[in-house]
């Protein structure tokens, strides 16, 4: 290999500019390139692999063996226990409770936050009024201010309207904190749409809502999907708001997971813990692998102008 590589590198340099297909698959450059990428991939995949194998082992095997070795005897008992028997405090009905709570938090939060943000974006793009840009600027600055400065005032607000500790209180919080990035996303999307479309509809006598429902909404399906991916993963993965604005009976899955794994009582059951951890990450992982390019587009859209 070392004998041929200087030669092949030389020919590559000669043929490169002329645009001929480089035939040297095993050049030193390629070995370095793919070798590095493979090594990095191993680093990134290792934790997931360790979680999976640990969750399939029995406790005796975990105590004896090493964390990287595949299970000698595959058992699904830890998964069953994590889902339906693991304890947090006095409740011993497993993560299924947290899963249910998370779903009940997720669906209205996603629906409400996207509805409001898309209307905001539409108003900001097509119906500017005096001061609209000022509010938008405050909104974007707000996205950078640490949540910690707004946590307690929100507790007071939620208590005032009687939603502290309830699922709907948390839904409102997610709507509020999702608003900056989503509004930005929709505003940029609607601004990029041809203005003639909007003007033609105006001439035909369509109003604010008419244009929104009959023209903008049907044309902006892709951005709605991107917003949904962003919100579903974001809200599902939230821990901070869940732990502060809900009570143990309505804790979302992430909070319950943390309580199960980091509880101080009892013997640590690492296999159950890892099964619980994997269960909690199933929803975002499925979304990620199914959505593929759209997920990337979502975070890029959020990132480029965020």
């Amino acid at each position: 290999m070392t004998d041929t590589s200087p030669l092949s590198a030389g020919t590559a340099a000669m043929t490169g500019p002329r645009g001929a297909k480089p035939k040297t698959r095993l050049s030193r450059r390629n070995i370095f390139l793919y070798g590095t990428l493979l090594l990095i991939s191993v680093y990134y995949l290792l934790p997931l692999y360790v979680m999976v194998v640990t969750s399939l082992k029995g406790m005796p095997e975990i105590r004896m063996g090493n964390i990287f070795s595949p299970p000698v005897e595959v058992t699904f008992q830890p998964w069953v226990k994590a889902w339906s028997e693991a304890c947090t405090g006095i409740n011993c009905d497993g993560l299924s409770r947290g899963f249910g709570n998370s779903v009940r938090i997720l669906i209205p939060s996603v629906a409400l936050s996207i509805t409001i943000a898309s209307i905001n974006g539409y108003a900001l793009a097509n119906w500017r009024f005096k001061g609209s840009e000022v509010f938008f600027t405050i909104l974007i600055i707000g996205a950078f201010i640490p949540y910690q400065t707004m946590l307690y005032p929100i507790v007071i607000l939620l208590r005032e309207i009687g939603l502290m500790g309830s699922v709907w209180g948390l839904v409102l919080v997610h709507t509020v904190f999702g608003m900056p990035i989503l509004t930005l996303l929709f505003r940029n999307y609607f601004t990029s749409m041809p203005e003639e479309l909007f003007k033609a509809a105006r001439v035909d006598g369509a109003g604010f809502w008419g244009i929104y429902f009959r023209i903008m909404l049907p044309m902006s399906l892709p951005i709605f999907v991107v917003a949904m991916i962003l919100q579903v993963t974001g809200i599902w993965n939230d821990f901070l708001f869940g732990v502060i604005y809900t009570k143990p009976a309505t804790y979302p899955m992430t909070v319950q997971l943390n309580n199960i794994v980091n509880s101080v009582q009892g013997v640590k059951e690492y296999n159950v813990n890892m099964a619980a951890t994997l269960l909690t990450s199933l929803v975002p992982l499925v979304i990620y692998f199914v959505s593929g390019k759209l997920f990337v587009r979502g975070i890029a859209a959020g990132a480029v102008k965020g």
Binding site: P47, N237, F295
Partner: peptide, 30 residues
């Protein structure tokens, strides 16, 4: 490669923390 390197970003910090807590566990981990 991109899918592999980006997937942890889809996971929550809680999951990330618990996974690495286990991998770095002094008695059983690395």
């Amino acid at each position: 490669f991109r899918t592999i390197i980006l997937y942890p970003f889809a996971l929550s910090f809680v999951v990330t923390g618990l996974a690495w807590q286990w991998i770095l566990n002094p008695d059983f981990g690395v």
